[in-house]
Amino acid sequence: MRSLRRSRGAPTPDDLDDGPLEAWAVPTAPAGGLSFEGEAVPVVVLHQAGRTFAGPPPVEALKPTDLVIERGEYVAIVGPSGSGKSTLLHLLGLLDTPTAGSYHLDGIDTVTLSEPERAGVRAARIGFVFQAFHLLAHRSIVENVMLADLYRPGGRDRRRERAVEALVSVGLEHRLDATPATLSGGERQRVAVARALVSEPSLLLADEPTGNLDTATGDQIMALFDDLHGQGLTLAVITHDRSVAARAGRVVGLRDGEVIEDRLVGSGMR
């Protein structure tokens, strides 16, 4: 499998058009001389962020929470149903805004942004992988991946090439023009991962990525995640599957809207 992150040399005019400068920053090398912010800013900084759904009665889905995810971390968010892990995912993914506290993504204060700006941050800095894949049935694999660049500023340049590169990086170079219906579940999820990667996000959010897959294919997806983590990608995986969580470097456990555990495991312990 070839490296997902294209090596970045001196910025070219093409790169300048391509997006914000910090997208160049190689996550594993925070002192790479490119960081405008000096030392690497954590990807995620939640400060007393909470989410209450208006009543009656009001439901405090997520109690005020502090959470910092450093660049290159692989975090599993675990908890039973109703524990608030989905709410946390939506806050992290900018699909929802906290009703209390603050959330900085790549140092950007996301709470104060307008909707088009938040959508722009979502497009440029966050990659989503869903349990149900969410591929468009009437489009080819490569078109599905190209969709990720539709709403991204500067996303038109080399759109197809970058989609193909992302598909190659997940090992699907032989199925580019197939439709999702002809793919196996594992292949579909790999297409979804490729779609999440094409914008070179700061944070990959996965919501029960193995939930619709059998154990063997689920393991393949998790191996892919391990690989991406090895290349320096920041991952947050929501799961109720302890074996999935065990592959992460850090496990954040939720219960009743509260963080009840936050510990380093496995590779993160080293």
Partner: peptide, 10 residues
């Protein structure tokens, strides 16, 4: 640090 607005090309 700036946040670029999401856009949709015609």
């Amino acid at each position: 640090m700036t946040a670029e607005r999401s856009r949709l090309n015609l």
